[in-house]
C-alpha cells in the first residue's frame, strides 16, 4: 500500500520516475537551442511588421484625429486644435497624445476639466508610437491652413435596416461583426447588447451628431475599433443606415444592465446541468454489491 502511494506520487510529479528526470533536463537543453532561433526569427519578423505602420504627421492626423478634432474649424467631439502647441506645455501634450487614458486615470486637472467639458467622452489611447506622436505635434505646430472634418458623403439612412445591421439580423457586406457583439443600445430587449465597448444609446449626440458620427463610422479611429474594422470596413450605405439607427435610439432611455439576470441564469444553468447529470448517472453504483460500495467509502 505504502509502496503504491510512493510510486504514484513520484510518477505524478513530472509524469516520470525519479531516475528518468535527468533525461528530461537534457531534452530541455536541446529544445532551448531550437527555441532561441525561433524566438529570434519571430521577434525580427514581428518588428518589421510593426514598423510598417506610421507615416507623416498630416496623414496620421487625417487618419486618426479628424473624427473628433478640427484645426480652426471649431470644436467637434473634442476641442479645436488650432494653436494647441502654444496653449499647452510640450511635455504634457506628448504625454496626453500618447497615453490619454493614463493621464486621465492619474487625475490630471487639465484632462479632468476637458472630460467634463466634452460630454464625458474620454480621448481614447490610439497606441501611437513616440515617433508618431512627435510627427503629429510637428504637424499641429504648423498645419498650413484650417483643417475641418473630412466631408463624408452622407445619404439618407434607413433606421430599421440600421437596427438589423446592429443586431446582426442583416449581415454586413464586408464581413464585420454586428455592433451588438460589443455594444448595447436602447430598445434591444431583455438581455441587451454587448458590454465590451460602451453603450451607444446617446452616442449620436455625444459624438457630434450627423457629421461626427459619419466621420467616426468612416474612419473607426480608436484602437479597438480600428483593429476589427481596418480590413472589413462598413459600406457607405451601411454607415448611413447605422447613423440613422443611432439617431433614432438616442431619444430612448438607456437600457438596464442585464448583469444580475445573467448571473441568475448562469446559476440556474449550472444547477440544471448538474441535476441532469445526477439523474442520468444516479444508478451508477446500482449494479455493484452494496457491501462493496460501503467498504469503498472508508
Amino acid at each position: 500500500m505504502t509502496h503504491d502511494l510512493l510510486d504514484a506520487k513520484s510518477a505524478g510529479a513530472f509524469g516520470s520516475l525519479p531516475g528518468r528526470r535527468s533525461v528530461g533536463i537534457a531534452d530541455a537543453r536541446r529544445v532551448a537551442m531550437v527555441l532561441i532561433w525561433i524566438v529570434a526569427a519571430l521577434v525580427g519578423s514581428a518588428r518589421v511588421a510593426l514598423a510598417q505602420g506610421g507615416g507623416d504627421g498630416e496623414t496620421l492626423f487625417t487618419q486618426k484625429c479628424t473624427a473628433c478634432h478640427t484645426i480652426g474649424g471649431g470644436n467637434l467631439v473634442g476641442p479645436d486644435l488650432a494653436g494647441v502647441v502654444d496653449r499647452r506645455d510640450p511635455a504634457w501634450l506628448s504625454q496626453w497624445i500618447a497615453q490619454p487614458d493614463k493621464v486621465l486615470a492619474a487625475g490630471d486637472p487639465i484632462a479632468t476639466q476637458m472630460l467634463a467639458e466634452f460630454n464625458n467622452v474620454p480621448m481614447p489611447n490610439l497606441a501611437l508610437t513616440e515617433a508618431e506622436v512627435s510627427a503629429i505635434i510637428t504637424y499641429l505646430a504648423n498645419p498650413g491652413g484650417a483643417v475641418t472634418a473630412p466631408v463624408v458623403a452622407m445619404g439618407v439612412g434607413d433606421a430599421a435596416h440600421g437596427r438589423a445591421l446592429f443586431t446582426g439580423a442583416s449581415r454586413l457586406a464586408n464581413g464585420g461583426p454586428p455592433c451588438m457583439s460589443c455594444h448595447s443600445i436602447a430598445g434591444l430587449g431583455a438581455l441587451g447588447g454587448g458590454a465590451l465597448g460602451p453603450d451607444l444609446t446617446f452616442a449620436y449626440n455625444t459624438y457630434g451628431g450627423d457629421a461626427g458620427v459619419a466621420t467616426f463610422l468612416n474612419t473607426m479611429p480608436t484602437v479597438t475599433m480600428n483593429a476589427v474594422w481596418a480590413r472589413q470596413p462598413l459600406t457607405p450605405a451601411e454607415q448611413d443606415d447605422l447613423r440613422a439607427f443611432l439617431q433614432e435610439a438616442s431619444v430612448q432611455q438607456r437600457p438596464p444592465q442585464a448583469l444580475w439576470q445573467l448571473t441568475a441564469l448562469s446559476v440556474l444553468g449550472t444547477l440544471l446541468f448538474m441535476g441532469a447529470g445526477h439523474l442520468y448517472w444516479r444508478s451508477r453504483l446500482g449494479s455493484v454489491r452494496k457491501t462493496m460500495v460501503q467498504r469503498a467509502r472508508i
Binding site: G168, G176, P177, P178, M180, S181, C182, L191, G193, G194, A195, L196, V228, A258, L259, L262, T263, S266
Partner: peptide
Amino acid sequence: LVYRWGSGWYLH
C-alpha cells in the same frame, strides 16, 4: 459575464 457578448467579439 462582464464583457458580453464574447462569442461575437472573440470571432473578430
